[in-house]
Amino acid sequence: MELTRRDALLALSAMGIAAGGVAQQLGDRGTVSAEVTDGTVAVAEVVFPSSVSGNREFVETYLDGRTEGDGYSLEEIASLLDTIDREAKRSTGRSFTDLTPSKRDDVLREIGAAKAYPDPDGTVPQRIRYYLVNDLLYALYSSPTGGELVGNENPVGHPGGREAYQEGPDDE
């Protein structure tokens, strides 16, 4: 199942971010640093299912929208990614982005992101859960591609029209 920029734009819409400006900027990136994009993609490769591809394009568009949208702090993301990277180097001697997804999974769990309550104003693990883990999961499962993975092609928050609810499941 391939994620697309359109999926990211629709996910942004579901997050309350008017993505019209983002769509116009798609050919004119530059606000989000390569480090932030690389780091976020590396997290996405852990928290997204392995059957999903196109993560980089999805994440780029998504991060652009976050910058453009509601004043969501990229500095916050960058800071959290730095923390994750430091933990990766401490425990493995390598950068987070250079690790295999399995090792990255270990690092995120070691840092406490899987046991912290998601809180945008909380501790570092709580903010990693909120801003990185949950935001990416939300973006995925509120996009049509993410929804289709589980049999819901018009996820709540996505303006996907009025046909899906009338249609039966695919296997009928």
């Binding site: 928290v47 997204f48 392995s50 059957s51 997804p101 883990v133 589980v150 049999g151």
Partner: peptide
Amino acid sequence: GIEWGDDLLANIREQY
């Protein structure tokens, strides 16, 4: 801790 990745997908498929 919480699930993510393929484990989470399997869990959502089971519960949704």
